[in-house]
């Protein structure tokens, strides 16, 4: 028995490392490119490890005229959008998962439908819409944080994901709470939310990620360099006759770091999900 466990463990590690190679391998190329000179990117035979480490690339991108500000803007935009989305989408998801009300199915299908219209085609009408938001200045929400954040803050995917997750929580729990005199909001707040930490963490990460990697919408809203976000700043390394490969890759490497840190930081939340109920119930 002991031996079998050991073999199992070895197999687990071998598989884990194999998967790691597939998922991380290409990124090593990205990091390597970020450290090469532009000439070496093009070099033949291709080099895997840079012959000379150009850490200067990482300095250069920060000296770029728009990147630092764009980085900051992205953090602001993604953070606020994430908070809005996690809170409001979970409220709506709770209603869809637990409450009965007229038009429930149609409304939910409508939520799903919002994810299906290709975002690119909404640009033309959305531009007019945000330019004509009532009670705003002559250019509406153009070139403002409100314009960058609000129209895309709530996502259908968040409502959908949370609803699906809430549905997997045993209903007995909220029944009991209802007997104890909890209001619906209390059930949502005290029972469903604490049990859904992994899903909430997921929504937070994906919302943040979605905003972090958003290009088209931000490009449409941002008119001045002060409102640029990270992907716009990165796209600017592609010019008519040339791509600054090293700078794009240095920028992309840098841009990936906050995401990984966030993902790493949210890890404990994943382990405190529904799985906890089992042990709770056992004793």
């Amino acid at each position: 028995m002991q031996k079998r466990k050991k073999i199992n463990l070895i197999i687990t590690y071998v598989l884990a490392i194999f998967v790691l190679m597939i998922f991380v391998g290409p990124y090593l190329w990205m990091v390597a490119t970020a450290l090469k000179s532009q000439g070496e990117v093009m070099a033949w035979p291709p080099t895997i490890i840079p012959t000379e480490f150009h850490f200067q690339n990482f300095v250069d991108i920060w000296q770029n005229s728009v990147l630092p500000r764009a980085f900051f803007n992205s953090v602001i935009v993604a953070t606020i959008a994430t908070v809005i989305n996690v809170f409001f989408a979970s409220l709506a998801a709770f209603a869809f998962a637990r409450l009965e009300f007229p038009w429930k199915n149609s409304l939910f299908l409508a939520v799903l439908a919002t994810m299906m219209i290709p975002p690119g085609l909404m640009i033309v009408p959305l531009f007019s819409l945000i330019r004509n938001i009532p009670f705003t200045g002559p250019s509406g929400w153009l070139d403002s944080y409100a314009g960058l954040i609000i129209p895309t803050a709530i996502t259908g995917f968040a409502i959908f994901l949370l609803k699906q997750y809430f549905m997997s929580i045993p209903k007995d729990l909220d029944d009991q709470a209802a007997i104890d005199g909890c209001s619906k909001f209390q059930i949502y707040w005290r029972i469903i939310l604490p049990l859904s930490r992994p899903a909430l963490a997921l929504v937070a990460i994906f919302t943040f990620l979605g905003n972090w990697n958003e290009y088209l919408w931000h490009l449409t809203v941002a008119r001045s360099a002060d409102m640029y976000t990270i992907q716009i700043a990165l796209a600017r390394f592609q010019t008519e006759h040339n791509i600054e490969w090293t700078l794009i890759m240095a920028g992309a490497t840098t841009a990936a770091v906050p995401m990984l840190i966030m993902y790493f930081a949210l890890q404990p939340l994943f382990e405190k999900g529904l799985g906890g109920i089992g042990t709770g119930m056992k004793d």
């Binding site: 606020i80 938001i133 009670f135 705003t136 200045g137 250019s139 509406g140 929400w141 403002s144 944080y145 409100a146 314009g147 954040i149 609000i150």
Partner: peptide, 8 residues
């Protein structure tokens, strides 16, 4: 959010 637009 509003102050964003207010600023505008």
């Amino acid at each position: 959010a509003c102050s964003g637009s207010d600023n505008e």
